[in-house]
Design a protein around this nucleic acid. Sequence first.
DNA 1: GCTCTCGTACTCGGATAATACGTGTCCGAGTAGCGAAGG
DNA 2: CCTTCGCTACTCGGACACGTATTATCCGAGTACGAGAGC
Lengths: 158, 158
Amino acid sequence: MNQGVEWAMHVLLSLAWAGDERPVPTAQLAGSYDLPQAYLHKQMQALARAGIVESLPGAHGGFLLARPPEKITLMDVVAAIEGKEPAFVCLEIRRQGMGEDAPKSAFRHTCAVNAAMQRAELQWRKSLAGQTIADVKAAAEAHAPSAARLARQAYGRD
Amino acid sequence: MNQGVEWAMHVLLSLAWAGDERPVPTAQLAGSYDLPQAYLHKQMQALARAGIVESLPGAHGGFLLARPPEKITLMDVVAAIEGKEPAFVCLEIRRQGMGEDAPKSAFRHTCAVNAAMQRAELQWRKSLAGQTIADVKAAAEAHAPSAARLARQAYGRD
DNA sequence: GCTCTCGTACTCGGATAATACGTGTCCGAGTAGCGAAGG
DNA sequence: CCTTCGCTACTCGGACACGTATTATCCGAGTACGAGAGC
């Protein structure tokens, strides 16, 4: 899994805490987590292309959530960073070899191996799609009530 | 996901069909699916190290299942090829930055981001652990009854 | 004093290198079967 | 004819290159604020 996924999650959490009063630039976000600013910026662009965050160019620009945290699922975030292609891709290797006398009818249905792997991956996707940034935010606040205040302080929201 | 996982699945299926009368060498397995023999051999070694297949060295040697297909879960196979480390690793980036005044008590619990991602990954693992090579074999035979016969023919089991 | 213009600083956007892991290949270690030689 | 020794062929095992994708970085495009000149 790409490192950027974790970064994106935390950044989106920070943006949720920061609110949409004014955008937060990449430099501040990177500073909050001691991340390489340039590379984080690349991930932010991916989130912007996916429509998860909105980018404001120019001075006093930055990023802010494009929609409320309740509408951003973890699946959206993973898809934005990692891409939408399934992790397991079946190259249908069963067709090759086995001699040429293998009847085509044997391959009408989906490869059973692929079906099993896709079944597992679907469970993963369902779990990710069932959790939103708002859920994670609520969980974080439940464990550490000071998190929201600290985040807002870090971005000068006082 | 590593390409080797798909190969391993199909190979294990083939080994299940071939039976444990005598081992199947890598060359035959690779020939069945038009795979690069040397690289497939590398994957077979990983399966052998994981205790999924047994390796018989020397002439007329090869590989055979170390235990019945019912006892081999897809999770075992994925773990053998990809490793047991979770796909999402939390580097605890939340600790950095945020100013030094962040109380340590805020970080006693697991990172909420990590918890959410692990929850999804657990669903994936549970699905994989709930399916065995025997299940996949049965599904393949249901769709293509000739598969078993073709496999046994390919390895000279007549 | 007010307005317009220009300049500067700041931030996003995409194009460009460095690195790590997955992919692919090779040669050495060990074993089983076969053939020949000896009894 | 039977036994034993040695040889050859075959297969696993691990160590060694290659390619691609992730990681990391830089420079250009565009915007907002502020200073200064003109009216």
